[in-house]
């Protein structure tokens, strides 16, 4: 058995529209996730993240390619996969009319735990997710954060080998988000492999060991957060000016090709990738002095994942136009 909890090779999935037109949601996607790690799949809306999770969790068959989860093929051995996975979908997968405990007992029974173990497991999970006091209340009356925690509890009934979280914190307030993050962190020690999709770079930064950036149904970059940041050209230099009218002039002075420089007019901010930190800092300060431009701030920093993503998908242009 390999060390990979998830292996995806050349997965393709096209949704057939009317008159035979199709949209490729997965366009030859490759992905490997090591056991007992948290892997974030990062990408904008429509990048194929949800389709990927649906394929991995046996809800959707890929048109072609090989997809193996917890040692079993998702198409040929769907049942074996289902025994080993937990799924937290984008929409709460709960019976809203039933109580929290009733929901967990229902899912426990469907996992064939038997009545007594299903009840015990429900109590355990309610306790663990801080829902003991509200187990009798109908889920429809839960807050967003509570509902998400119950949903997460429901996906952990059998302590799955692999857990899929599809945008687990979308739509939650900061407190609900923190609750879910804590819950995910507490899982990782137990040996569970977690694959989570997110639009929030901060979420990937906070939770994931490795990140795959997805765009148009393909992985455009893959690595640790640090590796990805380095791949973008490492550090960046930010220059904040006093006078927004000088932004264009200064953009030409920075030690980077003009099209790698981003301009944020509202904040009077220029940002450029640099390779040699100290040399770049000296050069920029010198160039500003020679041009007689007053800078409010000049600073070196690591790139954000936002910049990594925009850099890798070649969407820098669009951001500049929008700025």
């Amino acid at each position: 058995m390999s060390d990979a909890a998830i292996t995806v090779e050349e997965a393709r999935k096209t949704y057939r529209g009317a008159r035979g037109s199709g949209t490729a949601a997965l366009d030859g996607l490759d992905l490997t996730v090591a056991r007992s790690t948290v892997h974030a799949v990062l990408g904008p809306n429509g990048a194929g993240k949800t389709t990927l999770v649906r394929v991995l969790s046996t809800l959707l068959r890929p048109d072609s390619g090989r997809v193996v989860v917890a040692g079993h093929d998702v198409v040929r051995e769907a049942y074996q996969v289902r025994l080993r996975i937990g799924l937290l979908g984008q929409h709460a997968a709960l019976d809203e009319e039933l109580g929290g405990r009733q929901n967990l007992e229902l899912f426990g029974r469907l996992h064939h735990l038997g009545a007594r173990r299903a009840r015990a497991r429900a109590d355990e999970l309610l306790e663990r997710f801080g829902l003991s006091g509200t187990g009798a209340k109908a889920v429809a009356k839960y807050s967003g954060g509570m509902r998400r925690r119950l949903d997460l509890a429901a996906s952990l009934i059998t302590e799955p080998e692999v857990l899929f979280l599809d945008e687990p914190t979308t739509g939650l307030d900061p407190r609900g988000r923190a609750e879910v993050w804590d819950a995910v962190r507490s899982l990782v020690g137990g040996g569970t492999t977690v694959l989570l999709t997110t639009q929030y770079l901060e979420e990937a930064d906070q939770l994931a060991d490795r990140v795959s950036m997805v765009d148009s149904g393909r992985v455009v970059a893959d690595g640790t957060v640090d590796q990805l940041k380095t791949a973008t050209g490492g550090d960046r230099i930010d220059v904040v000016l006093r006078d927004a009218g000088q932004l264009e002039t200064v953009a030409g002075l920075l030690p980077a090709p003009r099209d790698a420089v981003t301009v944020d007019a509202d904040r009077r901010l220029l940002s450029a990738p640099v390779s040699d930190r100290m040399a770049a800092l000296t050069a920029v300060v010198q160039a500003l002095r020679e041009a007689g431009v007053e800078a409010e701030d000049v600073a070196l920093r690591r790139p954000t994942l936002d910049e990594v993503f925009l850099h890798l998908t070649g969407r820098d242009e669009r951001v500049k136009e929008a700025a």
Binding site: R54, T58, L59, Y79, G89, H91, A93, D95, F107, A154
Partner: peptide
């Protein structure tokens, strides 16, 4: 509601 998705992802 998505609850059918959970059923379908279970053994």
């Amino acid at each position: 509601k998505g609850v059918v998705d959970r059923f379908r992802s279970m053994p």
